[in-house]
């Protein structure tokens, strides 16, 4: 400590070296993948360990766009994720509003049940989900998958939104009710706009999970035209195929919007996570 006090730049140097080492470990696989996406050849065996040392080609991106089902997978994943997001927002906020503002039979038991169900991952019941979907002709359909995600999202999101709505004074909606507004109208025009911060946070988190989920699409979707991004990406580097460069190109296309988004929103990300830690 004495040396550090005498020469403050020594401390900074140690910190700088440590952080740089960590940064190299963090960024290496990402750079490597970026390099692979633009490298000629297909298999990982032919790739050099140094990113971008093998030359430069955009052939893999062209192959993705025309030679594989990638555009279709992208569309499917987008439809599933946005369907799940919209459905979750509507159903969860409606239920949360009811839980926050009404008193009715079984309210406590329902809230407790939701809290307990949050813990159990829904894919433990995979076989049953499969059979239920088979019974309602929902297998190999995108809406069947959306239903599964919606149900899985409900317990946690309802609690989250309900906790938020509890912090909004009830005076506002009671005043509107005295003016003769219906419940649905109060919900849509007064409560929802106030709850916007939590709904935006929820929209982002509920979109990300189905976007890259593997296990339920694997279970539910069968036909080639109903595949999703995660299934497709895994198929590039499964045991049968070794097409790492195409996988890398596909992964880059998937990851870049996320990376840009996270870098742009890191400040509010930090504060919203802190909020989550305090509020929940």
């Amino acid at each position: 400590m004495d040396i550090l006090k005498a020469r403050p730049w020594m401390g900074n140097l140690i910190v700088l070296v440590g952080l740089s080492l960590a940064a190299v470990v963090v960024i290496w696989p990402i750079l490597y993948t970026l390099g692979a996406a633009f490298a000629p050849g297909n298999s990982i065996g032919g790739l050099s360990a140094v990113p971008f040392a093998d030359g430069f080609t955009v052939a893999h991106f062209l192959h993705l766009a025309s030679g594989t089902g990638y555009p279709r997978w992208f569309l499917n994943s987008f439809l599933i994720a946005s369907g799940t997001t919209i459905g979750t927002l509507v159903l969860a906020s409606l239920a949360a509003y009811v839980f926050s503002r009404f008193t009715f039979a079984f309210k406590r038991s329902l809230m407790t049940a939701l809290l307990v169900l949050q813990i159990f991952p829904s894919f433990v019941g995979m076989i049953a989900v499969y059979v239920v979907l088979l019974r309602i002709n929902g297998l190999d359909t995108l809406w069947g998958l959306v239903l599964v995600y919606l149900a899985g999202n409900m317990p946690y999101t309802i609690w989250l939104v309900k906790s938020y709505l509890d912090t909004i004074p009830k005076g506002l909606d009671e005043a509107a009710r005295l003016d003769g507004a219906s419940h649905l109208r109060i919900f849509a025009t007064i409560v929802m706009p106030i709850a916007r911060p939590i709904l935006i946070f929820l929209a982002i988190t509920t979109f990300a999970a189905p976007w890259m989920d593997f296990i339920f699409p694997k279970l539910v979707l069968r036909s080639p035209e109903q595949q999703t991004l995660a299934l497709g990406l895994v198929s590039f580097v499964s045991d049968k195929n070794n097409d790492f460069t195409t996988f890398a190109a596909g992964a880059i296309v998937v990851a870049i919007p996320f990376i840009v988004f996270f870098l742009l929103t890191q400040k509010s990300l930090i504060s919203s996570m802190a909020g989550g830690a305090v509020k929940e």
Binding site: I27, P29, Y32, W211, V237, F247, A251, F258, I259, L263
Partner: peptide, 23 residues
Amino acid sequence: FRAIFILPYAVPAVVTMLIWRNM
């Protein structure tokens, strides 16, 4: 540094794990 350290959080887990498996 902060921007670099956020990167693993932004990359989907499936992608991360498959990259590492190949590396």
